[in-house]
Design a protein around this nucleic acid. Structure first.
Length: 137
DNA sequence: GCCAACGTTGGC
DNA sequence: GCCAACGTTGGC
């Protein structure tokens, strides 16, 4: 099982928007970046990911699951996307500042390159973020 | 194939 | 609202 992180502006597409789509899944469309696309191609059905809000929130807010592997983006078939289902919100959002302040997470892609819209997350980082959320909930 | 210019993103 | 960083594009 691999872990990922999906970044979105809440004004454009928020966690709440995603939850409303329920269990049928939702295309993670609009990605126009080669690195991000490569990460999506590597995803397998059942992989988990974090949902991160950029802009005002700057925090990881929820957990999603890959419900369909990479396929052409219906908004632009030259690109590809995966489908995601919202699983559950974190016990409490974990902010970018907290991630940067945690020595165990300082090498997270999110801290080093916040502009990449789809990122890999290691097992260690995944567990650490969940622990922080639960510890301070 | 390289490199400069440009546009976009996102944190501050 | 500003500025720095990054990725992409296009000219050579």
């Amino acid at each position: 099982m691999a872990y990922w992180l999906f970044k979105s502006e809440p004004g454009t597409w928020s966690w709440d928007d995603h939850v409303e789509h329920g269990k049928k899944g939702q295309e993670w469309d609009g990605v126009r970046n080669f690195q991000a696309r490569n990460h999506m191609r590597a995803m397998k059905k059942g992989d988990n990911g974090f949902f991160y809000h950029s802009g005002e929130d700057k925090a990881i807010v929820g957990v999603v699951e890959v419900s369909a592997e990479a396929h052409p983006d219906s908004t632009d078939t030259k690109w590809e996307c995966v489908d995601l289902v919202a699983i559950e919100p974190l016990a409490r959002p974990v902010s970018l500042a907290e991630i940067k302040a945690d020595p165990a997470l300082e090498n997270m892609v999110l801290a080093r390159n916040p502009r990449l819209s789809v990122q890999p997350v290691t097992d260690v980082e995944w567990k650490r973020v969940l622990k922080i959320a639960e510890a301070k909930a």
